[in-house]
Design a protein around this nucleic acid. Structure first.
Lengths: 192, 192
DNA sequence: CGCGACGTTGATTTGCCTCAACGATTGTGG
DNA sequence: CCACAATCGTTGAGGCAAATCAACGTCGCG
């Protein structure tokens, strides 16, 4: 819980009362590796904040292929994008490692926004950053080759490289595992 | 200005005082067709709300190619994604038609957030929706062929089809104009 | 009218996918 | 602690969607 309060505190100032309300609104959950936190098709019930471990969010397309949309480690948020609007979820979230998360359901969240108005600002800022990150992702898909995207990922998220299987990284980059494998091979050789 | 207040009023309740403050914070600007509102590289100064007309936001990649990121017509927001964080802009915004916009600069906007706390919530909601739209765009790029994306665009934004040149639509869809041309041809024939 | 931007069409190329086979690594029950 | 299966990553041959390049028709506009 400390981790979350500290994270929020970086954007807005919380009173002791606010902190108490927040602490009571979130609950903790420990989940073993390879468990589902949420499955596509169900109503998008919870918003998650990661205290420990590594999670992955993905959707399954009309042909049955999974596409990884986001990874989350300590100090990150993860949820379906339908959470905020109350739609049924399109995303599945599962764990890549034994993990520990804070979670909150939508009714509680709505109450929270009224009780702690600072949260509107906090999430406005969080969403601004998320939107900018998404934007950069779209720009990369448009303008970069798969190889360039892989190199950029290495540079930007070195922490993830050890923690996530290649096939999920490939999916996140928008390619298939076989091709990522070939890219890596190519990147090693031309060191002449 | 009425249009903006009405738009905000759909998400949060504004007092008369709030409305007055808002009215004074935004200014109106009329721009002829094919003029620049903002150019990439400059600091991202303004946030725009469209009252009239049609605008386009795009960035220029390392090879000098333009990529259309968003269109905006009446009752829509448009801005660089750097606006909120105060970075230099990566996006260029120009007009596809004679247009009229409301605009606000960042310092004024920051003051506004403090004067009218409802705005934090309003933009939180706007950003949630924008994020979801971006998400769907990424999902389309991952899972749909160019033809499917074109058909989906036709269905979702019929209002735009008449107003924007094909080459910009192609760019928005992530393909080149020549290929869009071929797609349209193919879609006409197989009506057997 | 004539120029320049826009859209169309065709021939060729390429980045990435498909499918299939084969090591390597992980994990699980005996 | 080993045996065996399952999962994951690698490699190669062939295919396809979309890009590139180039040529040509057409429309709006000075």
């Amino acid at each position: 819980m400390e981790l979350l309060l500290k994270n929020i505190g970086r954007q807005v100032t919380l009173s002791e009362r606010d902190k108490k309300i927040l602490s009571e609104a979130f609950h903790t959950k420990k989940i073993k590796r390879k468990q589902f936190l949420q499955e596509a098709g169900e109503p998008s019930k919870y918003l998650y904040f990661v205290l420990q471990g590594c999670l992955r969010g993905y959707y399954t397309d009309k042909d049955g292929f999974e596409h990884v949309v986001s990874f989350a480690i300590e100090d990150w948020w993860i949820s379906d994008f339908g959470f905020h609007t109350g739609n049924t979820s399109i995303m599945t979230i599962d764990t890549l490692e034994d993990s520990e998360v804070l979670y909150i359901d939508k009714p509680t969240m709505d109450k929270l926004y009224d009780q702690v108005p600072q949260l509107d600002r906090y999430f406005r800022i969080i969403l601004q950053n998320a939107l900018m990150a998404q934007m950069q992702r779209i720009m990369q898909i448009n303008s970069f080759t798969a190889e360039e995207r892989y190199v950029a990922f290495q540079k930007k998220y070195p922490q993830f490289l050890q923690r996530i299987p290649q096939k999920y990284l490939a999916s996140f980059l928008g390619i298939i595992p076989e091709f990522l494998s070939k890219l890596k091979k190519q990147l090693l050789k031309p060191a002449k």
